[in-house]
Simulated scan of single mutants.
Amino acid sequence: MADNPSDPDSSRAQAREAWARAASGEPGLQLHRASADAGFRSYWRGQSDQAACVIVMDSPPELEDVRPWLQVRDLLAGGGVRVPRVLARDVEAGFLLLEDLGADTLLHVLDADNADAHFDAAVDQLLRLQAIPCPADLPAYDESLLSRELHLFDDWFLGRHLGITLDRDESGVLETSYRHLVDTALAQPQVLVHRDFMPRNLMPAGGGPAVLDFQDAVRGPIAYDPLSLFKDAFLSWPEERVQAWLSRYHARAAQAGLPVPVLERFMRDADLIGVQRHLKVLGIFARLHHRDGKPKYLADAPRFLDYLDAVLRRHAELAPLAALIDRHVRPALA
């Protein structure tokens, strides 16, 4: 069994500290947990009396290879996206020394008064990201991945969390809805997609905001990342502001030469890829609770039902899905 990287007495912790001191040239460097919920990776803030803060990424190689993170990081940096600077690395051991971008993410500093400015700056980075040509070996947000994510909703949220068993007709409603969502996603113009481009993964920084948590990037639907930015997992905005921000993103993307369709089609695409994401996230939150012992995320489940309510009734082809959610999910949560 691998050492727990969060255990200060483990051999992994000792190796991490020794490497960080050598890599930084600071023998008195002390490491303190900087963030959690990064899969098998952990992040540690290094401080000493003589040095500015640094961040150590610890990615135990037997659990999570650091090379995909580095490959995508270098791809984004090459396209002008603001990403954390790598100060030192030991790929075989799974240690990186990174610049410290501070403790506050964009989620911590956003409010109703400054949101326009912060989102404009975030879109600056997003447009650069989406303009990067996708490497031939970049995974695709293909039918298999889109479908697998959607089934997290019925497997983990409906089944495991709510204990709901659908009859054959209701299962057919889900499958028909999933088919429509997958088909419309695949029909969108395809670009580099971060897959979690939201305020918690953006850091206010010089030349920023800096983009984090990009290692799962794929080639996929152009509306996915802007929708993720404005319909965040942890912070909701009035629907009219979201629609205005999406419209502004569309105008800027078109001006930048990105392959956005006409506005009406783009807004429809954003709606539908949003439904795919909202269903997936409900499934992920249930899985985090039941499989990983992280129950706090389910407190945000009502937010995603509100997101679905705002969209499903705009699209007649998804009315059966709306009815299924009204019949089963709302009563179960109430």
Rank of each mutant, 00 (worst) to 15 (best):
E175A: 15
Q243P: 04
D3C: 09
W245I: 02
D113V: 09
D213K: 01
A34Y: 09
G79L: 07
Y307F: 12
K280C: 09
A301D: 00
V91S: 13
R314G: 09
R314S: 08
G80M: 02
P135D: 04
Y178Q: 03
D104F: 07
R160G: 10
Q190C: 04
A121I: 11
G207V: 02
W156S: 05
L145A: 12
G220S: 00
D155K: 15
V81R: 01
R252V: 08
V66N: 01
D9A: 15
A18D: 14
L202D: 05
P68C: 04
H290S: 14
E26Q: 15
A185Q: 04
F285C: 04
A140E: 14
L212P: 03
V182M: 04
R168Q: 11
A205F: 12
V83Q: 03
G208A: 03
Q14C: 11
R16I: 02
A217G: 09
R314W: 01
E26Y: 10
L70E: 11
F214S: 05
V56W: 05
G159E: 01
A22Q: 15
T176V: 08
L127V: 03
G80P: 02
V109C: 10
S59P: 02
V109D: 01
A38K: 04
V72N: 00
D196N: 01
A270S: 14
V83N: 03
Q14G: 14
E143S: 14
